[in-house]
Structures are given as structure tokens and as C-alpha cells.
């Protein structure tokens, strides 16, 4: 729930940034409803705002969206849903819902599923609500840093990561991933340093 609230509040910043870069309130809200992936959405309005083409905006956002596909591969065998439920599950497969679900997996399978749906719907609700609020001009609240939200989000991810670091090998992977992501940030486009660490995990997993 705290993940839903903190991340949802970032929607204010997105709504404000989107309108400031020339998107209408309707387009801003459609991005949050349909794309529903913070990094991809910020990329779209950022690229267009900097004068980029629609194609380059879509390409950048889609590169960032590959991450969600990877999460889908991880979540599908755990959720075991079909038909309409799978469409809904796919739409709410994002960093936060996947992170919370995998964090809760150690407790029980039902806690894992509960965590996925609750976080997915929670973030969806708050993200869209606050996108609308931000887009409608609540720019005074747009500085989420003044509320400490820019630290609350990594702290939340750290809380999810912590119980998973029981073996030394897992801790080593975490440390390598942290340094790799920081080192690659000035070199690779935003989002790719995160995705790239998944390939480190794949390389390690297939060798062991």
C-alpha cells in the first residue's frame, strides 16, 4: 500500500510535465490509463518536449517497456490467469506490482498473488488520479522532492530486495547490479541500465 501511494503521487509530476511539454489533459490521462508505465510515459513527453519526432518518442518509450514484458514472463506462471483476467494482469504488470509480488513470494503463494493485484490496482488508481490532478495545474504540489517521495520509492524497493539477500551469491549479484546500473547511467539511454542487469542475472543463473 505504501508503494501504491508513493508511486501514485509521482503522477502529479507526470501530469504537470506532460501538459508543460504540449500534451493536452486528455492525452496525458490516456497515457497514464493505457501506457501505464512511468518511465515510458516520462520518456514520451520528454522526447517530444525536446523536439523529438513521434517515432523516436515511441521507440524510446518502447525500449523502456521491454522491462514490463520481462516481468510478464516472470509473473505469468505465478498468476496462472487466462482470458480477460490475463489482459488485466498484463496491463498492471509494472515495476511495483512485480516487485511486491516477488517480495511476498517467500511468505506464501496467495500473499504473492494478493500483493500483485493489490499493488497493481493501487498504483493504477493513484497514478491516474494524480496524473489528472497534475495535468489540471496542481503544479504547486509537483515538487515531490519536498515531500521526500524521491527517497521513499528507492527505500520501498530496498525493503522488497532485502529479504531476498540471504545467500552470499545473491548479495554479490545485488552489489554488481548496483555498480553496473550507476556506471551505465551516463552512457546508455534512461531505463536500459536497469534492463541490462537482468542479463547479468541470466548469465549468472545459466552458469551456476
Amino acid at each position: 500500500m505504501s508503494v501504491s501511494l508513493t508511486v501514485g503521487a509521482y503522477g502529479v509530476a507526470f501530469g504537470a510535465a506532460s501538459v508543460a511539454n504540449g500534451f493536452s489533459v486528455l492525452q496525458s490521462c490516456l497515457l497514464s490509463l493505457l501506457t501505464f508505465s512511468g518511465a515510458s510515459q516520462f520518456a514520451v513527453v520528454g522526447v517530444i518536449g525536446a523536439g523529438g519526432s513521434a517515432i523516436s518518442a515511441i521507440a524510446t518509450a518502447s525500449l523502456l517497456g521491454i522491462r514490463n514484458g520481462l516481468y510478464g514472463v516472470i509473473m505469468a506462471p505465478r498468476l496462472k490467469v487466462k482470458g480477460f483476467k490475463r489482459i488485466i494482469a498484463a496491463q498492471i504488470t509494472i515495476d511495483e506490482s512485480t516487485g511486491v509480488a516477488l517480495g511476498a513470494q517467500k511468505r506464501s503463494e496467495s500473499a504473492m498473488r494478493h500483493g500483485f493485484w493489490l499493488t497493481g490496482f493501487g498504483v493504477f488508481f493513484f497514478w491516474n488520479l494524480f496524473t489528472l490532478a497534475g495535468a489540471l495545474g496542481a503544479q504547486a504540489m509537483g515538487d515531490t522532492r519536498a515531500w521526500g517521495l524521491d527517497s521513499a520509492v528507492p527505500a520501498a524497493f530496498l525493503g522488497l530486495l532485502w529479504p531476498r539477500l540471504e545467500k552470499n551469491g545473491d548479495r554479490a549479484l545485488a552489489v554488481v547490479s548496483i555498480f553496473f546500473a550507476i556506471a551505465m547511467t551516463p552512457i546508455l539511454p534512461a531505463g536500459l541500465p536497469i534492463i541490462a542487469t537482468a542479463f547479468i542475472a541470466i548469465a549468472v543463473g545459466l552458469r551456476r
Binding site: 545485488a174 547490479s177 541490462a196 543463473g205
Partner: peptide, 11 residues
Amino acid sequence: LIPIALLSALV
């Protein structure tokens, strides 16, 4: 292992 790497990178 993938979520360990991704969560670490996100942090």
C-alpha cells in the same frame, strides 16, 4: 535471480 538484479538496479 532476475528480480534481485532488477530491484538492485532500481534502487
